[in-house]
Each structure stands twice: as C-alpha cells, then as structure tokens.
C-alpha cells in the first residue's frame, strides 16, 4: 500500500473537488486498507510512541489487550490510507483547524480497515471556506474502531 501511495499531492489536484463542488451528506469514495505492524510502528516512531503494547509482542500478549495493538491516533494514517488520490482531503493548502475522535476498540496489525466518510457541513466564517468531515473506521468484522470529525479550511 505505502509503496503505491502517490506522495505528490499536486499530481491529481485538478481532479479533486473544490469547496463549491463538495456536497454535505454525500459519501466520499474510500477503499479498504490492511494495517501492517510496520505501518503502526513507523507511525509510533514519528510521534515518539514507545509503549510496549505497540512494540513488544510478549508484553502485549500478557496484557488485557491480548496482543499488539495500534495507538488510538492511528486514524491519522488511516484517513489517507483509506482514501484515493483524488480525495479532496489531499488538496494542497488544506488547513486542518481541529479534530475530535471517539475510540471504541483498538486497531490491530493485520486488520483490514474500512472507512465510511462524508462531508457533514460546509460554511463561510471570517471569509474562510470551511468543510467539516465525518468519518467512521471499522475492522474486517464490522466492529467500530473509532469515529471522528474534522474542521478543514479549504484553499482558494
């Protein structure tokens, strides 16, 4: 997955919806993503996460979690992993103003993660163009991992 990921966010810019095109309530296109231990641990290292629940298989097996897990904030990676290159969240200049997330169960290495996502609202405030996005991540059993909203300021 990571190898095929387009890191040049300008490349598909013309195909992405702008603020005017985004319809609140309309689902965003998403795709399943298999979460690997390598991806979890790379994310952990990037924010200084070093808890043994993410790195030490023996410790994790003996813990209440029964095995290695991902930190709750793994949805930061999943947001981009589960959406295609023309998703408007990738539009260069998109400013993230804030997010709120609720957590149910942890994601685990080997999980196939799916995303249900949509724009929930769009508005103009202080001359800025805002879109609120609404997201639910589930595992391969349909169990909710986490759900969350984000406030983005759209580039003009």
């Amino acid at each position: 997955m990571a190898q095929a990921f387009e890191t040049d966010f300008w490349k598909d810019a013309a195909s992405r919806k702008i603020w005017d095109d985004i319809v609140p309530g309309e689902p965003r296109q998403t795709m399943p993503y298999t979460l690997t231990l390598d991806a979890i641990q790379a994310y952990c290292r990037s924010v200084g996460e070093d808890h043994p629940l993410y790195f030490d298989e023996d410790y994790a097996r003996r813990s209440p979690y029964g095995g290695l897990i991902a930190p709750p904030s793994i949805h930061i990676l999943l947001m981009f992993a589960c959406t295609p290159a023309d998703d408007w969240m990738r539009t260069p200049g998109t400013v993230n103003a804030g997010q709120s997330w609720s957590y149910n169960i942890p994601a685990r290495p080997g999980d196939t993660i799916t995303l249900q996502a949509r724009a929930l609202d769009k508005f103009i405030k202080k001359e800025r163009l805002f879109v609120i996005h609404d997201n639910v991540f589930c595992n391969q059993r349909g169990e909710v991992i986490c759900s969350g909203r984000g406030w983005t300021i759209r580039p003009v």
Partner: peptide, 19 residues
Amino acid sequence: RAFAAASLDFNPLHLDDDY
C-alpha cells in the same frame, strides 16, 4: 518528514518551502 511518511499526509504545507 517522518510524520508525513508515517501518516501519508504529504500536504506541501509541511514540506515545500517555496509553496
């Protein structure tokens, strides 16, 4: 850059000085 690679968020806000 490490966070961009690990989160797959390559928005030029975080990477491109010219932009």
